[in-house]
């Protein structure tokens, strides 16, 4: 009989979100491979809450997920490195990072926990502010910002910002009423939440992007091992194809954001090499330092990532 796998993620389904499209593509390709395998997709947290997906996939209760790995950093502190300011920089470097020793270490942790990566994905993000352009660290001083990710919050606090945590759906109202001066989130959210209506300046990812988040497609190892060799091959092939698709589309997404904001009359800037280095210096004193203290072998992990050209 047909084996049915459950795939879960937190992103809107059928609305063109690339992470949803990746999973849909995998489901289509696996079905086309004709290996008695069907993938049911549960988008928009309709099965598991975002944070609960890790436990479920490593236990074999959930078969597949598109998962922001940092969400599991409370259980595996190493994962904080996948949402660490300034560790990636740009898309080409992200690609090189995937085959580096750094990611080999991370993937080892994933596998030991009971899951495996079938498609790598690094998502880029931006900054926007109502006050002015966020470039060097002192441009953020005294602003209330909603940041995405604890390691970022640590660095932003070190830059003298005040943090307000809220779900991304509240950022719009937050910026409008003035609870927030600035926001940091993924490029996709910057477009879909229409923050250009309240932002004065957008800091686009460009060549020196601070914010990157690793959101791979994971498969439960327990489940994978139960599949036939043909089924396993079909899944791996579909994953590889989805990864290539993502790499192409994610760049278009950044361009779409820049165009949208320019059209709305928002100033769009990028960080210069000096700005980026200043942030990196700040990150070294805050997030990197905390990470090295908290995680065994943490400094070595960061060094491996920074060593990638």
């Amino acid at each position: 009989a047909q084996t049915v796998l459950k795939a879960s993620h937190q992103f809107p389904g059928g609305k063109g979100d690339i992470r949803d499209e990746m999973v849909q593509m995998i489901a289509r390709d696996v079905a086309a491979a004709d290996v008695d395998l069907e993938i049911q997709i549960f988008p928009g947290s309709s099965l598991y809450k975002p944070n609960d997906q890790w436990n479920a996939v490593t236990r074999g209760l959930l078969d597949m997920t598109s998962f922001p790995l940092d969400y599991a950093s409370g259980r595996h502190p190493e994962f904080s490195a996948t949402l660490m300011p300034g560790l990636v920089g740009n898309f080409d470097r992200a690609k090189r990072l995937n085959d580096s020793e750094f990611m080999t270490d991370i993937k080892k942790v994933i596998e030991d926990a009971g899951a495996m990566v079938i498609a790598d994905a690094w998502l880029s993000g931006a900054f926007a502010s109502k006050q002015g352009c966020i470039t060097s660290p002192d441009t953020l001083k005294g602003q209330v910002i909603r940041a995405a990710g604890p390691a970022f919050e640590e660095m932003l606090v070190a830059a003298g910002a005040s943090i307000s945590s809220m779900p991304s759906s509240e950022i719009y109202t937050g910026m409008q009423t003035g609870v927030l001066d600035a926001a940091n989130t993924s490029s996709a959210s910057f477009v879909s939440y229409r923050l250009f209506e309240h932002a004065k300046c957008l800091t686009a990812p460009g060549e020196n992007a601070l914010w990157f988040m690793y959101e791979p497609v994971l498969v439960s190892k327990k489940v994978f091992e139960r599949l036939t060799p043909e089924q396993q091959k079909a899944i791996l092939a579909a994953g590889e194809k989805a990864e290539a698709f993502f790499d192409e589309e994610v760049r278009k997404g950044d361009q779409l954001m820049v165009d949208t904001y320019k059209k709305a009359g928002v100033e769009v800037v990028e960080m210069s090499k000096e700005d980026y280095d200043a942030w990196l210096e700040l990150a070294k004193q805050s997030s990197y330092k905390n990470f090295a203290e908290k995680v065994e072998g943490g400094d070595a992990l960061i060094e491996k990532a920074l060593a990638v050209q």
């Binding site: 969400y71 409370g74 604890p150 919050e153 943090i163």
Partner: peptide, 14 residues
């Protein structure tokens, strides 16, 4: 047993 923390800056033990 796993010393799980909440994934936030404060990171309180769960």
């Amino acid at each position: 047993a796993g010393n799980w923390k909440h994934s936030s800056v404060w990171a309180p033990p769960l």
